[in-house]
Protein backbone atom coordinates (compact mmCIF):
# COMPACT_ATOMS: atom_id res chain seq x y z
CA UNK A 1 0.00 0.00 0.00
CA UNK A 2 2.65 2.48 1.06
CA UNK A 3 4.75 1.36 -1.88
CA UNK A 4 2.11 2.42 -4.40
CA UNK A 5 1.64 5.75 -2.69
CA UNK A 6 5.34 6.40 -2.89
CA UNK A 7 5.31 5.29 -6.48
CA UNK A 8 2.54 7.68 -7.46
CA UNK A 9 4.21 10.44 -5.49
CA UNK A 10 7.49 9.74 -7.23
CA UNK A 11 6.03 9.43 -10.71
CA UNK A 12 3.40 12.13 -10.40
CA UNK A 13 5.16 14.83 -8.42
CA UNK A 14 8.74 14.33 -7.31
CA UNK A 15 10.30 13.21 -10.58
CA UNK A 16 8.53 15.79 -12.83
CA UNK A 17 9.12 18.46 -10.20
CA UNK A 18 12.81 17.62 -10.09
CA UNK A 19 12.95 17.65 -13.87
CA UNK A 20 11.43 21.13 -13.98
CA UNK A 21 13.88 22.29 -11.32
CA UNK A 22 16.78 20.90 -13.36
CA UNK A 23 15.44 22.67 -16.47
CA UNK A 24 15.23 25.95 -14.59
CA UNK A 25 18.75 25.62 -13.24
CA UNK A 26 20.07 24.75 -16.69
CA UNK A 27 18.60 28.02 -17.96
CA UNK A 28 19.18 30.36 -15.03
CA UNK A 29 22.80 29.54 -14.26
CA UNK A 30 24.09 30.29 -17.80
CA UNK A 31 21.82 33.35 -17.82
CA UNK A 32 23.33 34.75 -14.63
CA UNK A 33 26.83 34.13 -15.93
CA UNK A 34 25.82 35.88 -19.14
CA UNK A 35 24.51 38.82 -17.10
CA UNK A 36 27.78 39.02 -15.18
CA UNK A 37 29.82 39.00 -18.36
CA UNK A 38 27.49 41.48 -20.06
CA UNK A 39 28.56 44.05 -17.48
CA UNK A 40 32.18 43.31 -18.36
CA UNK A 41 31.41 43.42 -22.09
CA UNK A 42 29.74 46.78 -21.69
CA UNK A 43 32.75 48.25 -19.90
CA UNK A 44 35.19 46.75 -22.39
CA UNK A 45 33.24 47.90 -25.45
CA UNK A 46 32.67 51.37 -24.04
CA UNK A 47 36.36 51.57 -23.23
CA UNK A 48 37.34 50.50 -26.72
CA UNK A 49 35.00 53.08 -28.23
CA UNK A 50 36.58 55.85 -26.21
CA UNK A 51 40.14 54.55 -26.74
CA UNK A 52 40.66 53.31 -23.20
CA UNK A 53 41.72 49.94 -21.83
CA UNK A 54 38.70 49.11 -19.66
CA UNK A 55 39.00 46.68 -16.73
CA UNK A 56 42.17 44.66 -17.27
CA UNK A 57 43.62 44.09 -13.82
CA UNK A 58 41.50 41.35 -12.21
CA UNK A 59 42.30 38.09 -13.99
CA UNK A 60 43.48 37.72 -17.57
CA UNK A 61 41.99 40.54 -19.71
CA UNK A 62 39.91 41.51 -16.68
CA UNK A 63 37.85 38.34 -17.03
CA UNK A 64 37.36 37.99 -13.28
CA UNK A 65 36.15 41.58 -12.88
CA UNK A 66 32.42 40.65 -12.57
CA UNK A 67 33.20 38.35 -9.66
CA UNK A 68 35.31 41.01 -7.97
CA UNK A 69 32.38 43.43 -8.35
CA UNK A 70 29.97 40.88 -6.92
CA UNK A 71 32.20 40.20 -3.91
CA UNK A 72 32.62 43.90 -3.31
CA UNK A 73 28.87 44.51 -3.38
CA UNK A 74 28.08 41.57 -1.12
CA UNK A 75 30.46 42.81 1.56
CA UNK A 76 29.10 46.34 1.58
CA UNK A 77 26.66 47.39 4.26
CA UNK A 78 23.02 47.37 3.19
CA UNK A 79 21.64 50.74 4.28
CA UNK A 80 17.93 51.27 4.72
CA UNK A 81 17.01 54.95 5.14
CA UNK A 82 15.14 55.64 8.34
CA UNK A 83 12.34 57.42 6.50
CA UNK A 84 11.89 54.58 4.03
CA UNK A 85 9.04 52.13 3.88
CA UNK A 86 11.13 49.11 4.86
CA UNK A 87 9.16 46.22 3.40
CA UNK A 88 8.60 47.87 0.04
CA UNK A 89 12.16 49.20 -0.01
CA UNK A 90 13.53 45.65 0.20
CA UNK A 91 10.81 44.21 -2.03
CA UNK A 92 11.45 46.52 -4.99
CA UNK A 93 14.88 45.22 -6.12
CA UNK A 94 13.75 41.64 -5.57
CA UNK A 95 10.74 42.31 -7.78
CA UNK A 96 12.91 43.75 -10.55
CA UNK A 97 15.23 40.77 -10.46
CA UNK A 98 12.48 38.14 -10.26
CA UNK A 99 10.59 39.66 -13.18
CA UNK A 100 13.74 39.72 -15.27
CA UNK A 101 14.23 36.00 -14.63
CA UNK A 102 10.70 34.52 -14.83
CA UNK A 103 10.16 35.85 -18.33
CA UNK A 104 12.77 33.37 -19.55
CA UNK A 105 10.39 30.50 -18.80
CA UNK A 106 8.77 30.85 -22.21
CA UNK A 107 11.78 31.80 -24.37
CA UNK A 108 12.71 29.02 -26.80
CA UNK A 109 16.52 29.12 -26.95
CA UNK A 110 16.63 26.38 -29.58
CA UNK A 111 14.18 24.06 -31.29
CA UNK A 112 12.18 22.51 -28.44
CA UNK A 113 14.50 23.93 -25.78
CA UNK A 114 11.95 25.79 -23.74
CA UNK A 115 10.78 25.32 -20.16
CA UNK A 116 7.13 26.08 -20.83
CA UNK A 117 5.87 26.14 -24.40
CA UNK A 118 2.63 27.97 -23.70
CA UNK A 119 0.04 29.08 -26.26
CA UNK A 120 0.19 32.74 -25.32
CA UNK A 121 3.96 33.10 -25.07
CA UNK A 122 4.11 36.55 -26.63
CA UNK A 123 1.43 37.90 -24.33
CA UNK A 124 3.23 36.42 -21.34
CA UNK A 125 6.45 38.18 -22.32
CA UNK A 126 4.60 41.42 -22.92
CA UNK A 127 2.83 41.12 -19.57
CA UNK A 128 6.06 40.47 -17.67
CA UNK A 129 7.88 43.33 -19.37
CA UNK A 130 5.00 45.67 -18.56
CA UNK A 131 5.31 44.65 -14.90
CA UNK A 132 8.93 45.76 -14.82
CA UNK A 133 7.79 49.29 -14.06
CA UNK A 134 6.62 48.26 -10.57
CA UNK A 135 10.11 47.51 -9.32
CA UNK A 136 11.18 51.02 -10.26
CA UNK A 137 8.10 52.90 -9.10
CA UNK A 138 7.98 51.06 -5.76
CA UNK A 139 11.69 51.70 -5.25
CA UNK A 140 11.24 55.38 -5.99
CA UNK A 141 8.29 55.79 -3.67
CA UNK A 142 9.55 53.71 -0.76
CA UNK A 143 12.95 55.45 -0.70
CA UNK A 144 11.20 58.60 0.52
CA UNK A 145 13.60 60.77 -1.46
CA UNK A 146 12.83 63.43 -4.04
CA UNK A 147 15.39 62.31 -6.58
CA UNK A 148 14.28 58.70 -6.38
CA UNK A 149 10.64 59.67 -6.70
CA UNK A 150 11.26 61.89 -9.71
CA UNK A 151 13.12 59.02 -11.36
CA UNK A 152 10.26 56.66 -10.63
CA UNK A 153 7.66 59.03 -12.09
CA UNK A 154 9.67 59.55 -15.24
CA UNK A 155 10.23 55.87 -15.67
CA UNK A 156 6.59 54.89 -15.24
CA UNK A 157 5.43 57.47 -17.78
CA UNK A 158 8.14 56.41 -20.20
CA UNK A 159 7.55 52.68 -19.94
CA UNK A 160 3.78 52.97 -20.26
CA UNK A 161 4.17 55.21 -23.33
CA UNK A 162 6.52 52.94 -25.21
CA UNK A 163 4.54 49.82 -24.39
CA UNK A 164 1.74 51.09 -26.60
CA UNK A 165 3.80 51.12 -29.78
CA UNK A 166 5.50 47.87 -28.74
CA UNK A 167 2.06 46.31 -28.55
CA UNK A 168 1.27 47.42 -32.09
CA UNK A 169 4.58 46.05 -33.36
CA UNK A 170 3.83 42.70 -31.74
CA UNK A 171 0.36 42.72 -33.33
CA UNK A 172 1.93 43.21 -36.77
CA UNK A 173 4.16 40.19 -36.25
CA UNK A 174 1.25 38.15 -34.95
CA UNK A 175 -0.76 39.02 -38.07
CA UNK A 176 1.96 37.41 -40.16
CA UNK A 177 2.23 34.34 -37.94
CA UNK A 178 -1.30 33.56 -36.84
CA UNK A 179 -0.21 32.21 -33.48
CA UNK A 180 0.84 33.58 -30.10
CA UNK A 181 3.26 30.73 -29.50
CA UNK A 182 6.91 31.80 -29.59
CA UNK A 183 8.14 28.59 -31.24
CA UNK A 184 5.50 29.00 -33.94
CA UNK A 185 6.68 32.58 -34.49
CA UNK A 186 10.23 31.38 -35.06
CA UNK A 187 9.08 28.55 -37.33
CA UNK A 188 7.09 31.06 -39.41
CA UNK A 189 10.38 32.78 -40.28
CA UNK A 190 11.90 29.79 -42.06
CA UNK A 191 11.50 31.45 -45.46
CA UNK A 192 12.36 35.01 -44.50
CA UNK A 193 13.07 36.74 -41.21
CA UNK A 194 10.44 39.30 -40.30
CA UNK A 195 13.16 41.94 -39.99
CA UNK A 196 13.14 42.25 -43.79
CA UNK A 197 9.46 42.60 -44.73
CA UNK A 198 8.67 44.48 -41.51
CA UNK A 199 11.87 46.51 -41.37
CA UNK A 200 10.38 49.77 -39.98
CA UNK A 201 8.64 47.80 -37.24
CA UNK A 202 11.91 46.10 -36.38
CA UNK A 203 13.56 49.48 -35.87
CA UNK A 204 10.64 50.80 -33.83
CA UNK A 205 10.62 47.70 -31.69
CA UNK A 206 14.33 47.91 -31.04
CA UNK A 207 14.14 51.58 -30.04
CA UNK A 208 11.16 50.81 -27.83
CA UNK A 209 13.14 48.09 -26.08
CA UNK A 210 15.79 50.70 -25.33
CA UNK A 211 13.12 52.82 -23.66
CA UNK A 212 11.61 49.81 -21.92
CA UNK A 213 14.93 48.83 -20.36
CA UNK A 214 15.76 52.45 -19.44
CA UNK A 215 18.88 52.35 -21.54
CA UNK A 216 20.61 55.22 -23.32
CA UNK A 217 19.44 57.44 -24.93
CA UNK A 218 16.27 57.00 -22.83
CA UNK A 219 17.85 56.57 -19.41
CA UNK A 220 16.03 59.53 -17.88
CA UNK A 221 14.86 57.54 -14.83
CA UNK A 222 18.46 57.20 -13.70
CA UNK A 223 19.97 60.28 -15.31
CA UNK A 224 23.13 60.57 -13.27
CA UNK A 225 23.71 64.21 -14.09
CA UNK A 226 20.35 65.53 -12.87
CA UNK A 227 18.85 62.86 -10.65
CA UNK A 228 22.08 61.32 -9.26
CA UNK A 229 20.91 57.84 -10.40
CA UNK A 230 17.18 58.31 -9.97
CA UNK A 231 15.31 55.51 -8.27
CA UNK A 232 18.53 53.74 -7.22
CA UNK A 233 19.91 56.66 -5.26
CA UNK A 234 19.15 55.27 -1.77
CA UNK A 235 20.17 51.71 -2.54
CA UNK A 236 23.44 50.10 -1.56
CA UNK A 237 25.05 46.69 -1.36
CA UNK A 238 23.07 43.69 -2.66
CA UNK A 239 19.87 45.71 -3.06
CA UNK A 240 21.64 47.83 -5.61
CA UNK A 241 23.23 44.75 -7.16
CA UNK A 242 19.80 43.18 -7.66
CA UNK A 243 18.63 46.28 -9.54
CA UNK A 244 21.79 46.27 -11.58
CA UNK A 245 21.57 42.56 -12.45
CA UNK A 246 17.84 42.84 -13.15
CA UNK A 247 18.47 45.64 -15.59
CA UNK A 248 21.10 43.71 -17.48
CA UNK A 249 18.99 40.54 -17.44
CA UNK A 250 16.19 42.65 -18.90
CA UNK A 251 18.51 43.83 -21.66
CA UNK A 252 19.28 40.23 -22.58
CA UNK A 253 15.59 39.36 -22.37
CA UNK A 254 14.57 42.21 -24.65
CA UNK A 255 17.28 41.28 -27.14
CA UNK A 256 15.97 37.72 -27.02
CA UNK A 257 12.45 38.97 -27.67
CA UNK A 258 13.65 41.03 -30.65
CA UNK A 259 15.55 37.99 -31.93
CA UNK A 260 12.49 35.77 -31.71
CA UNK A 261 10.09 38.28 -33.23
CA UNK A 262 12.27 39.61 -36.02
CA UNK A 263 15.58 37.80 -36.43
CA UNK A 264 14.35 34.23 -36.72
CA UNK A 265 15.23 32.99 -33.22
CA UNK A 266 17.40 29.89 -33.41
CA UNK A 267 17.27 29.62 -37.21
CA UNK A 268 20.52 30.01 -39.14
CA UNK A 269 20.70 32.96 -41.56
CA UNK A 270 20.64 30.67 -44.59
CA UNK A 271 19.60 27.05 -44.38
CA UNK A 272 22.62 25.52 -46.14
CA UNK A 273 25.38 23.14 -45.12
CA UNK A 274 27.95 24.97 -43.01
CA UNK A 275 25.35 27.10 -41.27
CA UNK A 276 22.81 24.48 -40.21
CA UNK A 277 25.48 22.21 -38.77
CA UNK A 278 25.74 24.53 -35.80
CA UNK A 279 23.15 24.01 -33.04
CA UNK A 280 20.26 26.44 -32.79
CA UNK A 281 21.34 27.86 -29.46
CA UNK A 282 24.54 29.12 -31.07
CA UNK A 283 22.62 31.24 -33.56
CA UNK A 284 20.23 32.43 -30.87
CA UNK A 285 23.11 33.52 -28.63
CA UNK A 286 24.94 35.13 -31.53
CA UNK A 287 21.94 37.24 -32.51
CA UNK A 288 21.38 38.30 -28.90
CA UNK A 289 25.05 39.22 -28.62
CA UNK A 290 24.81 41.33 -31.75
CA UNK A 291 21.79 43.21 -30.42
CA UNK A 292 23.50 43.72 -27.05
CA UNK A 293 26.49 45.16 -28.85
CA UNK A 294 24.16 47.64 -30.55
CA UNK A 295 22.72 48.50 -27.12
CA UNK A 296 26.19 49.38 -25.87
CA UNK A 297 27.16 51.10 -29.10
CA UNK A 298 24.13 53.38 -28.78
CA UNK A 299 25.15 54.18 -25.23
CA UNK A 300 28.57 55.24 -26.44
CA UNK A 301 27.28 57.23 -29.40
CA UNK A 302 24.09 59.09 -28.49
CA UNK A 303 23.32 61.83 -25.96
CA UNK A 304 20.37 61.58 -23.61
CA UNK A 305 16.95 62.68 -24.86
CA UNK A 306 15.15 65.50 -23.13
CA UNK A 307 11.92 64.44 -21.43
CA UNK A 308 9.51 66.16 -23.84
CA UNK A 309 11.48 64.82 -26.80
CA UNK A 310 11.12 61.35 -25.40
CA UNK A 311 7.36 61.70 -25.07
CA UNK A 312 7.09 63.24 -28.52
CA UNK A 313 8.99 60.36 -30.08
CA UNK A 314 6.81 57.78 -28.38
CA UNK A 315 3.39 59.27 -28.90
CA UNK A 316 3.70 61.43 -32.01
CA UNK A 317 6.15 59.42 -34.11
CA UNK A 318 6.15 55.74 -33.14
CA UNK A 319 2.47 55.38 -32.33
CA UNK A 320 1.14 56.70 -35.68
CA UNK A 321 3.75 54.81 -37.70
CA UNK A 322 3.13 51.51 -35.94
CA UNK A 323 -0.65 51.98 -36.11
CA UNK A 324 -0.36 52.64 -39.83
CA UNK A 325 1.78 49.54 -40.29
CA UNK A 326 -0.71 47.35 -38.45
CA UNK A 327 -3.45 48.49 -40.83
CA UNK A 328 -1.20 48.28 -43.88
CA UNK A 329 0.05 44.80 -43.04
CA UNK A 330 -3.45 43.55 -42.34
CA UNK A 331 -4.69 45.09 -45.59
CA UNK A 332 -1.83 43.60 -47.57
CA UNK A 333 -2.34 40.14 -46.09
CA UNK A 334 -6.07 40.22 -46.76
CA UNK A 335 -5.75 41.69 -50.26
CA UNK A 336 -3.27 39.05 -51.43
CA UNK A 337 -4.91 36.27 -49.43
CA UNK A 338 -1.73 35.61 -47.47
CA UNK A 339 -3.31 35.42 -44.02
CA UNK A 340 -1.92 32.45 -42.12
CA UNK A 341 -4.46 29.67 -42.11
CA UNK A 342 -3.87 28.76 -38.50
CA UNK A 343 -5.66 26.28 -36.34
Amino acid sequence: MTDTIWQTLWQGYIWPGGLILANILALVVPLLIAVAYLTLMERKVLAAMSLRMGPNVVGPFGLLQPFADAVKLIFKEPIIPSGANKILFIMAPCLTFILALIAWAVIPVAEGWVISNINVGVLYLFAISSLGVYGIIVAGWSSNSRYAFLGALRSSAQMVSYEVSMGFVIITVLLCVGSLNLSAIVEAQRTVWFALPLFPMFIIFFISTLAETNRHPFDLPEAEAELVAGYQVEYSSMHFALFFLGEYANMILMSGMTTILFLGGWLPPIDVAPFNWLPGIFWFALKILLLLFVFIWIRAALPRYRYDQLMRLGWKVFLPISLFWVVATAGFLVAFDLLPKGV
Binding site: V120, L123, Y124, F126, A127, S130, L131, V133, V160, E163
Partner: peptide
Protein backbone atom coordinates in the same frame (compact mmCIF):
# COMPACT_ATOMS: atom_id res chain seq x y z
CA UNK B 1 -2.53 37.53 -19.85
CA UNK B 2 -4.83 40.34 -20.97
CA UNK B 3 -5.82 40.92 -17.36
CA UNK B 4 -2.18 41.28 -16.38
CA UNK B 5 -1.26 43.47 -19.36
CA UNK B 6 -4.23 45.82 -19.19
CA UNK B 7 -5.03 46.06 -15.50
CA UNK B 8 -1.70 45.41 -13.82
CA UNK B 9 0.59 46.73 -16.55
CA UNK B 10 -1.28 49.90 -17.48
Amino acid sequence: MILVIVYVGA
